[in-house]
Amino acid sequence: GAPPLPPYSAGGREVTMKKGDILTLLNSTNKDWWKVEVNDRQGFVPAAYVKKLDSGTGKELVLALYDYQEK
């Protein structure tokens, strides 16, 4: 199953993602919540729920390892 959710501390809205989604990583300075862009929406997802990909394009991409439903 998915890892436990860290307390929400990102101070911005969250976004929903599905397992297998490829998201653009915008900011990973917060260790628990990373800012991503998905379907032209920006928001935060739990860092433990995604994995960085080596895209080779200069853009940082992450793979959704679990479904996440915004609150």
Score class of each variant (00 low, 15 high):
Tyr8Leu: 10
Leu5Val: 09
Gly12Cys: 10
Gly1Thr: 15
Leu23Asp: 00
Ala48Gln: 09
Leu65Asp: 02
Pro46Gly: 01
Arg13Val: 13
Leu5Lys: 08
Leu63His: 04
Gly12Leu: 12
Arg13Glu: 13
Leu61Asn: 05
Val15Arg: 02
Lys71Trp: 11
Ser28Gly: 11
Lys59Pro: 14
Lys19Gln: 10
Asn27Ser: 12
Gly56Trp: 09
Asn39Gly: 15
Pro3Asp: 04
Gly43Lys: 02
Gly43His: 03
Pro3Tyr: 05
Asp32Lys: 05
Leu5Gly: 04
Gly11Met: 05
Leu63Thr: 06
Val45Leu: 02
Asp54Pro: 15
Leu61Phe: 11
Tyr49Ser: 05
Pro6Phe: 01
Asn30Met: 08
Val62Asn: 01
Leu23Ile: 06
Asn39Thr: 08
Pro46Ile: 03
Ile22Thr: 05
Asp21Val: 03
Asp67Thr: 06
Arg13Thr: 11
Arg41Phe: 11
Asn27Pro: 03
Trp34His: 02
Tyr68His: 05
Tyr49Glu: 02
Gly1Pro: 14
Leu23Tyr: 09
Ala64Gly: 03
Gln42Asp: 10
Thr29Lys: 09
Leu5Trp: 06
Lys18Glu: 06
Phe44Arg: 02
Asp21Arg: 02
Gly11Arg: 08
Lys71Ser: 14
Leu25Trp: 01
Gln69Asn: 15
Val50Gly: 01
Asp21Trp: 09
Ala2Met: 12
Leu63Asp: 01
Lys19Asn: 03
Tyr49Phe: 10
Gly43Trp: 06
Gln69Arg: 10
Ala10Trp: 07
Gln42Phe: 08
Tyr8Glu: 09
Lys35His: 12
Thr24Trp: 12
Arg13Asn: 14
Lys18Ser: 09
Glu37Cys: 08
Leu23Trp: 02
Ala47His: 03
Val62Gly: 13
Asp21Gln: 13
Val45Glu: 00
Pro3Met: 06
Trp33Leu: 01
Lys52Pro: 09
Leu53Asp: 03
Leu25Val: 06
Val36Asp: 00
Pro7Phe: 05
Pro4Tyr: 05
Tyr66Leu: 04
Lys18Trp: 07
Pro3Gln: 05
Thr57Gln: 14
Asp21Gly: 03
Asn30Asp: 11
Glu70Thr: 12
Gly43Gln: 02
Thr29Ser: 14
Leu63Asn: 02
Gln42Ser: 13
Met17His: 01
Tyr66Gly: 02
Lys19Gly: 04
Ser55Lys: 09
Gln42His: 09
Arg13His: 13
Lys71Gly: 15
Gly56Val: 13
Gly43Met: 06
Pro3Ala: 06
Gly58Asp: 14
Ala2Phe: 10
Trp34Thr: 02
Ser28Ala: 15
Tyr66Arg: 06
Asp40Gln: 12
Leu63Glu: 12
Ser55Met: 14
Glu14Ala: 14
Ile22Glu: 03
Gly56Met: 14
Leu53Cys: 07
Asp40Glu: 13
Ala64His: 01
Gln69Leu: 12
Gly43Ala: 05
Lys51Cys: 11
Gln42Thr: 10
Gly1Asn: 13
Glu14Phe: 08
Ile22His: 04
Gly12Phe: 10
Thr57Val: 13
Glu14Met: 15
Tyr49Asn: 03
Arg41Met: 15
Leu25Phe: 03
Lys18Phe: 08
Asp54Tyr: 09
Asn39Ser: 11
Val15Asp: 01
Trp34Ile: 04
Val15Thr: 07
Gly20Cys: 04
Trp33Gln: 00
Met17Cys: 05
Tyr68Thr: 02
